[in-house]
C-alpha cells in the first residue's frame, strides 16, 4: 500500500474537483426533487381522484426500482425514444426522478401526520383548502419532515456515486482513475473516498439529529 503516492497533491486536487461535481449534482437534484416531490404529495394528499391514483402507481413503481437501473435507463435507453441528454443532465434527471418519488412519500407522510381535527376546525372557521394547507398544515408538517428530508439528502449524496456507470466525473469516478494507475493505490484511495463521504454525511446527520431534538 502506497499512501504517500496515492495522496499526492495533484491527486487530492483531482479528488476535490470530483467532489465538487458530486455536491453540485446532489444539491441541484435535491432542490428539484423537493419541488416535484412536494407537488406530487400535495396532489395525492388532496385526493384528486384520477391523478392521485396515477401518481400513486408512478411513485410506487419508481420507488421499487434500483436507482442504478434508472440512471442507466435515463442515459442509455431514453435516447432511443428521442430524449437525449448530456451526462450531467442525465445524472440529475435520474436522481431527481428517484428522489422525488422518495420525498413525495416522506412529505405525504408528514401531511398525513397532522390531526384531521385541525383541518376540520380550520375549514369551518372559513379558510379554504389552499389556505388551510398553507397556514395550518404545512408549517407543522414541514417541521416534522426536516429530519427525514436531511436523511434523504444523505442518501442522495451517497447515491451520486452510482453515476460512475455513465462516467460522470464525480468523486468516485476520479478516484477510480487514480487507483487505476497502481494497485498499491487501491486501498488508500478507497479509504480516502470513504472518509470524504463520511465527513460530509456524518456532519449532515448530526444536523438532522440536532433538529430532531429541538422539535421534541
Amino acid at each position: 500500500m502506497d499512501f504517500a503516492g496515492a495522496y499526492s497533491a495533484g491527486h487530492l486536487k483531482f479528488l476535490l474537483k470530483g467532489f465538487g461535481v458530486t455536491l453540485e449534482v446532489a444539491i441541484i437534484s435535491i432542490i428539484l426533487s423537493f419541488i416535484i416531490g412536494g407537488a406530487i404529495a400535495t396532489v395525492r394528499y388532496s385526493r384528486i381522484t384520477f391523478i392521485s391514483s396515477l401518481l400513486a402507481v408512478i411513485v410506487e413503481t419508481i420507488r421499487n426500482l434500483p436507482l442504478l437501473l434508472i440512471i442507466f435507463f435515463t442515459y442509455f435507453a431514453l435516447p432511443e425514444i428521442g430524449l437525449k441528454m448530456p451526462i450531467t443532465a442525465a445524472a440529475i434527471t435520474a436522481l431527481t426522478l428517484f428522489e422525488s418519488a422518495m420525498l413525495a412519500e416522506i412529505i405525504r407522510g408528514g401531511l398525513n401526520s397532522i390531526d384531521k381535527g385541525q383541518i376540520e376546525a380550520a375549514r369551518s372557521s372559513g379558510l379554504n383548502f389552499i389556505q388551510t394547507l398553507r397556514y395550518i398544515i404545512l408549517p407543522q408538517a414541514l417541521r416534522r419532515m426536516v429530519p427525514p428530508i436531511v436523511s434523504q439528502f444523505i442518501s442522495l449524496l451517497k447515491d451520486t456515486s452510482l453515476a460512475v456507470v455513465i462516467a460522470l466525473p464525480e468523486l468516485t469516478h476520479n478516484a477510480q482513475i487514480i487507483y487505476g494507475q497502481k494497485n498499491s493505490y487501491v486501498i488508500p484511495m478507497l479509504i480516502m473516498l470513504a472518509l470524504m463521504y463520511f465527513i460530509v454525511n456524518f456532519g449532515l446527520s448530526q444536523i438532522a439529529r440536532r433538529l430532531e431534538l429541538k422539535r421534541v
Binding site: Y75, F76, P79, K84, M85, P86, I87, I166, A167, P169
Partner: peptide, 16 residues
C-alpha cells in the same frame, strides 16, 4: 470530453 466504449455512441447522437 470523456467517452467510454459504452457512452460514445449515445454522446455522439446527443450532440454532446
Amino acid at each position: 470530453k470523456e467517452v467510454t466504449s459504452k457512452t460514445r455512441i449515445p454522446m455522439l447522437n446527443n450532440g454532446e
